[in-house]
Simulated assay, not measured.
Amino acid sequence: MQMKYLSGALAIALSPAFAQAALIDVLGMLTLNLDGPMTATVSQANVVRDNYSFIETTVRIAPNGGGPIYLDSDWGALSATYSLNIRNNAGYAVSGFSIGASQLEKYSVKYYPVDVGGTVSHQQNGQQVRLDHGIPFTEPDSDYFLHTWVDFASYGFAAQISPNTPQTHSIGVNYAASLGEPNPGWGGYAYIRPAEVTFSIYDPRTVVPVPEPATYALTGLGLLALWPRRRKTAGVA
């Protein structure tokens, strides 16, 4: 199977009003399951890494407009989700991914019902190598005021390029926020500041070995050593 090429960059946008998740097959190489206001941009480039030359396909997923998802008690009972789940398939290999830092935030006055939560996960060949529920920090001012942040640190993974059978990777970034029905005089809000995610993939059956610089140097020295001998032989003739 040959590498599938893009004729140009592909952008997929989901509006804030998008109610259902979108399952997207990116050139048969990986599956994106998206839910929430985000844009996915796909591009390709010829790269050289780990002494191999290959075509790398990169998917960049970013929140629409770069801003947070905001829920306000003035709008009544609401809920919002932001989820991104990626999996490589069909024999394609992961070359690397990067998950940026993110934050959830909730604010309530007079026990206003508001909640936020999320996870960042990574599975390699079915084994969990990362499961992050964030680090919460709560700032209570009184019995009537509560402010909580949940911070997620950035996370990245880079794989060694190889023509061998690829490992499977599953990446998940999932957040949720909800507001209940408040009593009169109660109020609050919830924020979701999603992470930007970059995911790269390639076809291991099409990688081409590239000699190391030392190999070129040795080849050059060998040719230089042969050059005087060839001149001498030519003179004798």
Rank of each mutant, 00 (worst) to 15 (best):
M1A: 13
Q2P: 10
Y5R: 11
L6D: 02
S7R: 10
G8N: 14
I12P: 01
P16S: 12
A17Y: 10
A19P: 09
A21W: 04
L23Y: 12
I24E: 15
D25Q: 10
V26Q: 02
L27G: 01
L32S: 04
N33G: 04
N33V: 12
D35L: 13
P37Q: 03
M38P: 08
T39F: 02
A40G: 11
N46K: 07
V47K: 03
V47E: 12
T58W: 03
T58R: 06
V59P: 02
V59A: 11
R60S: 15
P63T: 00
G67L: 07
D72F: 06
W75L: 00
W75A: 08
G76F: 06
G76W: 09
A77S: 14
A77E: 12
S79M: 07
N88H: 08
A90S: 10
I99C: 02
G100Y: 11
G100D: 13
S102H: 09
Q103H: 12
E105S: 07
Y112D: 00
V114E: 06
V116K: 03
V116S: 06
G118Q: 04
V120N: 08
Q124H: 15
Q128Y: 02
R130P: 00
I135Q: 13
P140K: 02
D141C: 00
S142Y: 04
F145D: 05
F145S: 12
L146T: 11
L146N: 05
T148D: 06
D151F: 14
G156S: 15
A159I: 07
A159L: 05
A159N: 10
A159H: 06
I161Q: 07
S162W: 02
P163F: 13
N164Y: 09
N164D: 15
T165H: 02
T168K: 04
H169F: 13
V173L: 06
Y175I: 13
S178G: 09
P184R: 00
G188L: 04
Y189T: 03
I192P: 05
P194Q: 02
A195R: 13
F199N: 02
S200W: 07
S200H: 03
Y202W: 11
T206S: 11
V210E: 11
P213E: 03
P213T: 11
T215L: 14
T215D: 15
T219M: 15
G222V: 01
L223G: 01
R229M: 14
R230N: 05
R231D: 14
